[in-house]
């Protein structure tokens, strides 16, 4: 019994161990890596992907996918840009509100497309939506990059706590917010009825429906939540870069998020995945990017490495499941 428990725990912390290993290797490879400020950098770089991964995770649990997450976030940013340049609105509260409403509305639309208009799989509808949003983002700001946002808008993405000028770069506020959101997610997914229903709808939508769970509403909620997380990511993006750049809509936000979730144990088949696994996945991706940049590798190599990591993560997961089954068989003898 004890060894079984140990193995279970080991299985759960395996991604964490891989992350630690990655840290050790990178520390040995370059002395620029393991410094306090670089660690804070990694956290800063994790925030956007972490938020979008949280959006992706709930969708993946329902056996769906949301390819429009990145474009949605950029559109949210560009909507604020439009209000500022075309309408001269500089009230931060209005800007942030419009940002969030845009994100949630787009997510809501994705949910409606899936449930009420019976599009076969969200892969198709959200892929279409991604293209629409890329275009809209360019359209609303007339393809211009907008800068000079009010401080309250950029606050979330740019602030650092305990900053020492010339020394410690400070703990990024966006990462602290990310952790707070993840804690809420943890309780939401594991301890509430709605959270459990999301897993059940992912596991068997028809059984859930016939058990009185309104699967359609759950799915609409899930995609709206995804949209909401995208709008928060938008605020961080604007804060970190100080601009709303419409052409960023085609950046690989969506695939990075999927990668983080899958590395963290989620499955395309639905019904699986945890928020803490996703955090490790997101940290892993930004650590690799960060380390490779410090080693002066080109972005082409970065893409290749991250692609291989994703494939390796899924392969390890599949192999582990098969090994466990085999171990059980042997133990029965």
């Amino acid at each position: 019994m004890k060894t079984k428990k140990m193995k279970e725990i080991l299985g759960k912390v395996a991604p964490l161990l891989a992350l630690v290993l990655l840290f050790i290797i990178l520390s040995l490879a370059t002395e620029k890596f393991f410094t306090l400020n670089n660690m804070m950098n990694i956290l800063r770089q994790t925030a956007v992907n972490g938020l979008i991964s949280a959006a992706m995770l709930v969708v993946l649990i329902t056996a769906g996918i949301d390819l429009s997450v990145g474009a949605n976030a950029i559109l949210c940013a560009c909507m604020m840009g439009m209000l500022k340049t075309s309408f001269g609105i500089t009230n931060s509260l209005v800007l942030i509100l419009v940002c969030i409403i845009t994100g949630v509305f787009i997510g809501f639309l994705n949910g409606i497309l899936l449930t009420k208009m019976h599009l076969p799989h969200p892969f198709v509808s959200t892929l279409g939506m991604k293209n629409v949003l890329c275009g809209l983002a360019l359209f609303v700001v007339s393809t211009k990059t907008i800068s000079d946002f009010p401080a309250a808008v950029t606050f979330l993405g740019s602030s650092n706590l305990f900053k020492v000028s010339g020394g410690f770069s400070g703990i990024p506020l966006c990462f602290i917010v990310l952790i707070l959101i993840y804690i809420v997610y943890h309780f939401f997914l594991n301890k509430t009825a709605l959270g459990r229903m999301i897993y059940c709808v992912g596991g068997n939508p028809e059984a859930a429906r016939l058990s009185g769970i309104n699967s359609d509403n759950i799915l609409i909620f899930v995609y709206s939540l995804s949209g909401f997380m995208c709008s928060i990511a938008a605020l961080v993006i604007v804060g970190r870069s100080a601009v709303a750049n419409p052409s960023a809509a085609i950046s690989p936000y969506d695939t990075d998020a999927i990668a983080a979730c899958i590395i963290g144990g989620a499955s395309f088949m639905g019904g699986k995945g945890t928020i803490w696994g996703t955090l490790i996945g997101a940290l892993m991706i930004s650590t690799i990017r960060n380390g490779l940049t410090l080693l002066n590798t080109s972005s082409s190599v970065q893409y290749i490495v991250i692609g291989l990591v994703i494939i390796a993560a899924v392969f390890i997961d599949v192999t582990r499941t098969r090994m466990e089954a085999k171990a059980k068989r042997l133990a029965a003898k």
Partner: peptide
């Protein structure tokens, strides 16, 4: 196909039809 969520526990399946009634405040 229609009665159970096979990937979930016995416990979860037993409360599948009345999850909302198994809560205390926000949480289960």
């Amino acid at each position: 196909g229609q009665g159970l969520v096979l990937s979930q526990s016995v416990r979860t399946n037993l409360i599948l039809s009345n999850m909302r009634r198994c809560t205390k405040g926000l949480f289960f």
